[in-house]
Amino acid sequence: MTQSLKNNLLKTIVLGSLIATVPLTALAQTAQEKGLAIAKERKLRDTGWGSSEQNMLMILRNAQGEESEREMRSKNLEVSNDGDKGLTVFDKPFDVKGTAFLSFSHINKPDDQWLYLPALKRVKRIASRNKSGPFMGSEFAYEDLSSFEIAKYTFTHLRDEACPEQPDLQCFVLESIPTDKYSGYTKQIAWIDQSDYRVQKVDYFDRKKSLLKTLISSDFKLYKKKYWRPLTMTVTNHQTGKSTVLKTSEIKFDVGLTDKDFNKNTLKRIR
């Protein structure tokens, strides 16, 4: 290729991208608005489920291929105008059996968290801003498992494309930037299918904006003809080679839970 040809090509590319940016900048506002609209629709479609119970099994794997399991039961209560409430009782490993974890998610302030330690027979408040560390040594962080709230992120719609795991479905690709400075992430990129607004895949980016881990949700099942739940969630850490599979089973809705079931004073009685 001659030098002049190269220059011409370069000019064309530069000019072309300048022209291409014009509508993009015009769209910039709407990309965020569209992102927010998608997030709101996602939240809307998952509103009104009331309360639920489920069993969870976590399978941890390290880079050497070793495995370890955790088992727990959890109860959730939908709270309107604030984050949800959750109560998780650990069954396995046996040495933490009966340990109960109560959490009140909040939209605009740090979540409240308590832990009942049966061996100490005391309820302890976890007085920490930290929610980005590994949950039970897994690749999930507490913040990955807590309830999805619009105010926790700012959204940008990036593009539409076929869903990575289900190419027959079309996905929104949504960038979410956490608003809490104690989040472990600088951004998340989520693939949300356009038919049911289910989160199919999430890429998590660490503080230095490198890809940290990827969540793939699968085995979606429809409950109450409205609410989709993934029965399998797999997180792979790209930096350490570790992974965790979270399998949910025996999901029950309308179990009649109320605020009274999510009370730190009644934690001790939970078994």
């Binding site: 390290n62 495995e67 040495d95 340990t99 968290q113 061996a119 920490s128 560390g133 040594g137 570790k242």
Partner: peptide
Amino acid sequence: ELAAQYLLMYEMSLPYGLDLNNQLNI
């Protein structure tokens, strides 16, 4: 059990990057 539960509580309080995974196997 006491040791296990202390450790669980501590682990749930640690932030990203300062966990105990460099000292404990899974």
